[in-house]
């Protein structure tokens, strides 16, 4: 069971942002998707969750191809967006109910998992709140709860560390570790390299819509001018020299 992205070329209109991007995410693995603003991280993620249609190339998970069998593919993924967007007319409890319905989860165990997550993120007394009552960080926690409530095989997490307090960041990282140990694959895009360096098993460094480097921290170091450098320095060395362009 692996997420396989094969020669993905894609973007928003006719102009491609991504050029022949290929990488994999294996079970029990946390892969960090890193790159400067406009490098193509969000575009990659938007393709992975089916918001954009590839110009060419394929995306498949555990044999289910996103283009040919979207239902089977989507059944296996969960997503935490960077900007928290919730349904304004649903309470927290109703968001969870909707997730349970959408993923056709068994109600009782799903609610048990939900209550554990709510407790962990200190949301258990806010079940009747509407999104308008939540702060940005709280909304993000709601979305993390919704994602981790599912029994997804692949978790896609976009820039999770902005807006979360340090306690919530720690809780999220623990949650990721648990899911990893249970055999799930996780793809996380982030700019917070110090945290990524500590927790990610592998990295995919995007630049100008292309995979500039990929592999473990050791692999990246080997490609960098100074092998003793930190991820920060490797990142800067590999990513600068690339032109910025907006996604």
């Amino acid at each position: 069971m692996t997420l396989t992205i094969d020669n993905l070329t894609g973007g928003y209109s006719r102009l491609p942002v991504l050029h022949q991007v290929s990488f994999t995410v294996n079970p029990g693995e946390l892969v960090g998707l890193i790159g400067l603003n406009g490098a193509g991280k969000s575009t990659t993620i938007n393709h992975l969750i089916g918001l954009l249609t590839p110009f060419s190339g394929s995306i498949s998970l555990n044999g289910a191809n996103l283009a040919t069998d979207p239902v089977a593919y989507k059944q296996q993924i969960a997503y935490v967006p960077e900007t928290p967007v919730l349904y304004p007319e649903l309470t927290l409890k109703e968001h969870l109910e909707l997730t349970i319905k959408a993923y056709q989860l068994a109600e009782e165990p799903a609610w048990e998992r939900a209550h554990r997550l709510l407790k962990r993120f200190r949301l258990e007394n806010k079940l009747d709140w509407f999104p308008v009552d939540f702060s940005k960080g709280m909304k993000q926690k709601v979305m993390i709860t919704m994602a981790f409530l599912t029994e997804a095989k692949l978790f896609i997490i976009d820039e999770p560390f902005y807006g979360l307090d340090p306690l919530a960041v720690r809780d999220l990282l623990n949650l990721i570790e648990e899911k990893k140990a249970a055999g799930a694959a996780i793809l996380m895009s982030t700019h917070v390299l110090a945290t990524a360096e500590q927790h990610c098993d592998r990295f995919v460094l995007l630049a100008n819509g292309r995979v500039r480097a990929a592999g473990t921290l050791g692999d990246l170091k080997a490609q960098a001018p100074n092998p003793a450098a930190s991820l920060d320095e490797i990142y800067l060395a590999l990513a600068t020299g690339d032109d910025h362009h907006d996604e």
Binding site: I49, P70, K74, Y79
Partner: peptide
């Protein structure tokens, strides 16, 4: 109404 909410596109539904 809900096209702007990413979850809507993620649900494993036909």
């Amino acid at each position: 109404q809900y096209d702007q909410v990413a979850f809507t596109h993620l649900y494993p539904l036909p």
